[in-house]
């Protein structure tokens, strides 16, 4: 896939996302504040799973830095 096209699409998407939303006031953040709404609500499980996928598939990273620290791939 054309990397330039991807970059343009991302920028366009980012701009849309930023424009399309109004600021959510602090007192409206009751749901967002719940631990299950954290982007990574179980970091040890995420780390275990990512490590398994890193050692069995050709892809890694995305959410954070890609795997590494292992001679398994």
């Amino acid at each position: 896939m054309n990397k330039k096209k991807i970059t343009i699409s991302i920028l366009a998407l980012s701009a849309l996302m930023l424009n399309g939303c109004s600021t959510v006031k602090p007192w409206e953040r009751d749901l967002l504040a719940k631990p299950q709404m954290a982007l990574d609500s179980d970091p040890l499980k995420t780390a275990f799973d990512d490590h398994i996928y890193f050692s069995k598939e050709a892809s890694s990273g995305g959410r954070g830095f890609g795997g590494g620290g292992c001679g398994c791939n």
Binding site: S14, M17, G20, L32, M37, G61
Partner: peptide, 13 residues
């Protein structure tokens, strides 16, 4: 934060 019920994240690495 899109609204009271939706948070989104986009990463390029």
């Amino acid at each position: 934060v899109i609204n009271r019920r939706w948070i989104t994240q986009f990463n390029i690495s």
